[in-house]
Structures are given as C-alpha cells and as structure tokens.
Amino acid sequence: MSTPSRKRLMRDFKRLQQDPPAGISGAPQDNNIMLWNAVIFGPDDTPWDGGTFKLTLQFTEDYPNKPPTVRFVSRMFHPNIYADGSICLDILQNQWSPIYDVAAILTSIQSLLCDPNPNSPANSEAARMFSENKREYNRRVREIVEQSWTAD
C-alpha cells in the first residue's frame, strides 16, 4: 500500500542512492520499507577511524512528521548512546523536523560520534571518561572499533 510515509521513504532511499554522503550507507530491509539497515563508518583521523557501525531505523506511518526510532546494533561506547543501542540526540527527539531525511539523520549521528554532548549522558562511564581521561576513553573507543570488524 502506498501511504505518504512510504512514498516519502522511497524518495529518501532514492536520494541516498544517488547522492550518498561520505561514510554512510543505508537501505530498507527486503519487503519492508519501514525498517532500514544502515552502516556508519567512523570518521577518518579520529579514534573512530576504521569502525563500521551497524544501525536499524524503524519508521512509522507518522514519518516524516515523527522521527524514526534509531538504534545501534553494533556495540558502542559513547556518552550519548545507551547500552541497548538507542541514541540520545536532539533531532531524534524534541528537535525533530521533517526537514531531515535518512541521509541527514545518519550524517548527524556520524558527527555525534566525535562530538559527544557530555551534558546529557546516556552512558555515564563513557561521559566521565570523555571529560576526565581522554586517553582511556580513546582506548575504549578503539576496542569498540576493532569489535565492529568481527561482529556479524
């Protein structure tokens, strides 16, 4: 069935295929335009460099008036990412606007990796380490990067 949200998601997909931003990729799962798989590559020249992080995006019929539920499938260590992979990011919550498409969502998450907001911690250990012991924080991030290569 073709609903406004499904039609819009088709266009999101088209844009992502034709004009993919650097370091991200994403596509709907087979036969289900409402559920997407995506991969974010860790930005170059940062501790995240080389990581391939998998996510899922679950859309509802309210899209694009409501944001999708976005979750990391890969294990993460980041001040704004919860243990279950869900992400604390303003544009996915109260600052959402239909102006954002899938490409913009993934790009925002990618930049969140290197630019965390320690004031609203989802992972308090990561937040504390980020502000108090950057060396140890970076080491933990490198571990996560290495794990991202081996996990399925």
Binding site: P4, K7, R8, R11, D12, R15, P64, P98, I99, Y100, D101
Partner: peptide, 10 residues
Amino acid sequence: GYADFTFEDF
C-alpha cells in the same frame, strides 16, 4: 539548498 522531496508534500 533544501531537497525538494523534504518539503514538496507539505
């Protein structure tokens, strides 16, 4: 620089 498809439905 807004992409057409983000606003055309509205």
